[in-house]
């Protein structure tokens, strides 16, 4: 049931291994917006966004919120907080990290009363397991992106997400 809303397709930045698990998560959980990114803020896939500027902002904010929450968790509890849920009046945000053989990733999702946080958490756990299985093993030669590469990577991924290349 889509509540009369036409669901936009999932778009990936060339990372085909995330397609099937993410599509299934979106279909099962009935979330409105989804963003999968690396912990650095580099976007891998998006669903529901219509403007690249929104994706760019959401990625930066999600990475910052996740880093802040993780550090608060370390300070308070000795271990980082791994997920965050913020319920609004009409829409809610769920932000959580995923560990795959390709490294740490962050999932940001926005949903409304078509689903619930219980269902989103349930299908998120399934997504995490599927992504961990689907991820190709990280090559030993791959290193963290440099600051100069980061901006060009970000722009290239955004262009791929919105079909400009």
């Amino acid at each position: 049931m889509t509540g009369g809303v036409v669901r936009s397709p999932l778009r990936t930045a060339g990372e085909t291994w995330v397609e099937e698990p993410l599509t299934r998560f979106i279909d099962d959980s009935r979330v409105r917006l989804t963003l999968l990114l690396e912990s650095s803020g580099r976007v891998l896939a998006q669903h529901g966004f219509t403007r690249s500027i929104d994706v760019m902002s959401a990625c930066a904010l999600a990475a910052a919120i996740h880093a802040s929450a993780a550090e608060i968790g370390r300070q308070l509890d000795g271990t980082p907080f791994t997920s965050l849920h913020h319920p609004g009046q009409e829409r809610q945000i769920f932000l959580a990290d995923l560990s795959t053989p390709r490294g740490a990733h962050i999932l940001l999702t926005v949903f409304d009363d078509a689903t619930s946080i219980g269902l989103v958490r349930l299908y998120f756990a399934e997504l995490a397991a599927r992504l961990a299985t689907a991820a190709p093993v990280q090559s030993a030669t791959v290193t963290a992106p440099s600051l100069t590469d980061f901006e060009s990577d970000l722009n290239r991924n955004l262009a791929k997400l919105f079909g400009r290349i």
């Binding site: 009363d113 619930s116 946080i117 219980g118 958490r121 349930l122």
Partner: peptide, 28 residues
């Protein structure tokens, strides 16, 4: 279970029952 959130407020279940999944899906 909270119907809006799909989260178990309290549960009493045998070992092996996936309480969180049942709570979320039954609330839905």
């Amino acid at each position: 279970v909270s119907e809006r959130d799909g989260i178990a407020v309290d549960s009493n279940a045998q070992i092996g029952v996936h309480a969180e999944a049942v709570a979320a899906l039954a609330a839905s």
